[in-house]
Design a protein around this nucleic acid. Structure first.
Length: 249
DNA sequence: ATTCTTACA
DNA sequence: TGTAAGGA
């Protein structure tokens, strides 16, 4: 029926945009001075804003609502527009790209993120996801570094697990995974590589190929051990539950 | 006369 | 952040 909201390519002048966003014209100009919104299209004297500006203002309002400072918001926005700066702002440096190079990147429009995680797609969770390295920013798009981890996160959220809990678990598992990787590489280094390591291109390639060849074995070991550990864990929990007659933990 | 900016509080 | 004054 009448669900035909004709809104797409509209343009606003200052007063219209301010009213639509629920702020004063003075505030709008202030945001623009602080680079919180992009410059409007100038037609002589008049400034024309579009829906992107309105969306940005809504974002700013939401962030302010959650207690963020204008300065912090400005940093985030600058990072988004820079496309590469978020990791630096959060103090992660280049820790995002390299370790995940073999994973499948998933490009996400911001709307898709809300689509996947519904009300859990909050700025806090977004920041946490950036911090842990699950998400990176590329221009106006978000990039998830692992299609598999994204899928698991999505399913867990649908099952009712809060996203902050998932991200916290991700950090924990990341630390354990680092330790496992250290164990595997130590074994390779000690037993499968020559003692003296002359820094030749051939040697580097040999190391790479050796690690690639053993990677599936490491994965199998971890899978099997986790399966066994899960069995032990569940058994232990159930036993203590029966003994105490009380739900553990 | 309208639309914005500047400047000051 | 409001508002008065002034440029285009």
């Amino acid at each position: 029926m009448g669900t035909d909201e004709t809104t797409p390519p509209r343009e606003y002048r200052m007063t219209e945009l301010a009213e639509a966003a629920g702020i004063t014209v003075r505030t709008l100009r202030y945001y623009r001075e602080r680079k919180l919104i992009p410059p409007p299209r100038r037609e002589g004297r008049v400034a024309w804003y579009d829906d992107r500006h309105l969306a940005r203002l809504r974002t700013i309002a939401a962030l302010l609502e959650r207690g963020h400072t204008l300065g912090g918001i400005a940093e985030l926005i600058a990072a988004f527009e820079g496309g590469r700066g978020v990791a630096e702002i959060l103090g992660l440096g280049g820790a995002i790209a390299a370790p995940w190079s073999r994973e499948t990147l998933v490009r996400l429009a911001p709307e898709e993120l809300a689509d996947h995680f519904a009300d859990q797609a909050t700025p806090e969770n977004l920041a946490a996801s950036l911090d842990i390295g699950y998400l990176a920013v590329d221009g106006e798009e978000l990039v998830h570094v692992s299609s598999r981890l994204l899928d698991v996160s999505r399913r867990l959220v649908r099952e009712g697990v809060p996203l902050p809990a998932i991200l916290a678990a991700g950090r924990e598992i990341r630390a354990h995974a680092d330790a496992l990787a250290a164990t595997f590489t130590a074994i390779v280094r000690e037993h499968l590589l020559p003692d003296d390591v002359p820094p030749s291109p051939e040697a580097v390639e040999h190391v790479q190929r050796t690690l690639d060849r053993l990677r599936p074995l490491a994965r199998t070991v971890v899978e099997a051990e986790v399966a066994l550990a899960m069995d032990r864990r569940v058994r232990a929990d159930v036993e203590s539950w029966l003994d105490d007659g009380v739900t553990p933990r």
